[in-house]
Amino acid sequence: MPDIELFVQSLANGVSVGAIYGLIALGFVLVYKSTEVVNFALGDLLMFSAFAGWSLSVALGWPIWLAVLAAIFLTSLLSGIINEAVVSRIIGQPQFAHILLTLGIAFTLRGLILLIWGADQRSLDSLAPDTLLEVAGITLRAERVQIILITLVLVIALQFFFRKTRFGLALQALGENQMAAYLMAIPVRRAISGIWMLSGAIAAIAGLMLAPLLLVDTNLWLVMVKGLIVAVMGSFHSVPGALGAGILVGVIEQLAGVYLDAEYRDLVVYASFFAILAVFPKGLFGGQSAKKV
């Protein structure tokens, strides 16, 4: 394979994996911006969506598109329930409490998934046909192209939602000042649940696109770590920030896997994470630093 083609292909792979990381990061960012909670259970919600998708499409034999939609809906619902039942009870407590609480939820979810589905590996089909596409002389798998397209559409829709719609603007206000939003008659509680459902749905979409690339098993939640790295690099801030940082991490990871040893892939990602934080302690898209006195 000529060098340039290998490079472009790994670039495309990097972008598609990075788009998924970006989506996971987006799941973190949405909840963080409105409530300053980092939902460490997001990886397990993502894993749940993959298992649910498998159960519906393989075990129950539903058509794949219906199974995918249903899995997204179920994950979103689960995410909303988690917020209503548990997380919303400790609003106003220090960040540390939220980290621990969502970690606890993560453990519980992971344990339940293990109980229900067991530790076996399964494979899940993708929505896209298993064919190769020829783009400008470079062959790409349809699956990869589909990931990039879906992510793009989703990101544009979210941008429109937050910039133009009433509810989206209300959510933005919530992120700025919860008390003020409450006084402005924004239904804070319901809005936060909405955000959690949205975040869960995005994680589910990421999970259902990721699962066909890997396998559906109980290590799938580990991809959350990459999502966290991306969210931090993108400063926990914006939709484009998360996507940009996601693609950066995806590309770094793929290129390191191809041109260095595959064993060092994750290490290179970790190293670049610390390098970027050393230079930009607030992430690549961070605003001003230092507390005002």
Binding site: V86, R89, I90, Q93, A97, L100, L101, L103, G104, I105, A106, F107, T108, L109, R110, G111, L112, I113, L114, L115, G118, A119
Partner: peptide, 25 residues
Amino acid sequence: SIRYQPGPDLVIYGAVLIGFVLFEP
């Protein structure tokens, strides 16, 4: 059937953590 699985361990760890954060911070 579930006695020898790793699942219950995780659920118990998670529940303990949630319980402490909620009720005994």
